[in-house]
């Protein structure tokens, strides 16, 4: 770990200006950032500690939605009665992630910004375009069991490791930020992450110094069934091989609405409108579910040791849809 200047932010506003300088980073839970700093994968010259800012509340909005302060720990968010009541998929996703200790530290904003668990990203002895742009991708042609089958580029096949963010994607969350120039913006989660393309080192649309202050959830979907299903290599305390977050409303045996997002498949929490289009207005049946899986996986491409994710995802999605629709 390289040494750094440590500052405790006095306010969100000063935090953003402090963090806008090159090499500066915010720190909150630190569970991912410090992990990476110890390995010198992250080498910030300055850490702006935002943990004492008043950004840790969960508030109900007049429109029926919920605003989650960026510092709300994962465990508190999972246990929040309003979340359990209206957004069970989020609670379930949070509880499927990490460990009790980590959930007590990890924050809502930080979780969205988790970096990939790609083996090669984590090893500074190997090339990695995300860590060291232009150095090459060791995962392509290497061991890539946990890596992506959708949204990849020839520069990077990393996956986003979060469970929470997958649920947030299914819930159409909006990320509220404060920029160094004092502007606030609201970014739909669909627009928040970037595909790797030629620049896998750039993962989100955040600008230098831009601070996530909250995450907004829209009004709960009425009459919806929620599900978060995660498949992993051990029973607990492991990242997803694949996961499904689903919020589905039925009208009799017909799918009235469906929101489905996926973990372990791509460089961002994955969502594809074609999957939902294959379901909405259709009879809940295995044929419908198969069509949804086809839509999801049409462009999926394995890289050898992760080929299995494609059939695994297909089966997991079909079983999840059976459960969500009661079919």
């Amino acid at each position: 770990m390289k040494t750094f200047q440590y500052e405790r932010a006095a306010s969100a506003e000063t935090a953003t200006t402090d963090a806008a300088t090159p090499g500066a980073k915010f720190i909150a839970g630190g569970t991912n950032l410090l992990d990476l700093m110890k390995l010198q994968i992250e080498t910030p010259g300055k850490l702006v500690d935002i943990t004492r800012l008043p950004l840790g509340d969960i508030e109900s909005r007049d429109d029926g939605g919920l605003t989650i302060g960026t510092l709300v720990p994962n465990s508190d968010l999972a246990a929040e009665p309003r979340v359990i009541e209206g957004y069970e998929v989020l609670s379930r996703a949070l509880l499927a992630g990490a460990s009790g200790q980590l959930r007590n530290k990890a924050t809502t904003g930080g979780n969205l910004l988790q970096r990939t668990r790609c083996y090669y990203f984590y090893d500074t002895a190997t090339p990695c375009n995300k860590r060291e742009p232009g150095s090459g991708c060791s995962a392509i042609g290497g061991f890539n069991r946990i890596l992506a089958v959708l949204g990849t580029s020839d520069k990077c096949i990393a996956t986003h490791p979060s469970d929470m963010a997958v649920a947030m994607r299914a819930l159409d969350a909006t990320i509220v930020t404060l920029k160094a120039d004092g502007d606030r913006r609201r970014i739909a989660i669909a627009d928040f992450y970037r595909l790797p393309g030629e620049t896998p080192e750039i993962e989100t649309v955040l600008e230098p110094g831009e601070l996530i202050t909250a995450v907004e959830l829209p009004k709960p979907v009425e009459g919806a069934r929620h599900l978060y299903r995660k498949v992993r290599d051990r029973a607990s305390y492991a990242f997803a091989l694949v996961s499904v977050a689903g919020v589905v409303v039925m009208d009799g045996t017909t799918v009235k609405s469906a929101a489905l997002a996926f973990g372990g498949l791509g460089p961002m929490p994955w969502r594809n409108p074609a999957v939902e289009a294959a379901l909405v207005g259709k009879e809940a049946s295995d044929a419908t579910f198969a069509a949804a899986a086809d839509a999801l996986l049409a462009d999926a491409r394995g890289f050898g040791s992760n080929d299995f994710k494609i059939p695994l995802m297909r089966r997991t999605l079909i079983a999840s849809l059976r459960e969500l629709t009661g079919a």
Binding site: Y120, I146, Y237
Partner: peptide, 21 residues
């Protein structure tokens, strides 16, 4: 990694020893 002999999963997050569950 068969290309260079580098150990791929060299931590307790990716070398999976059984957990309590």
């Amino acid at each position: 990694d068969t290309r260079d002999g580098k150990l791929v999963n060299r931590d307790l997050a990716e070398y999976h020893v059984p957990v309590n569950a």
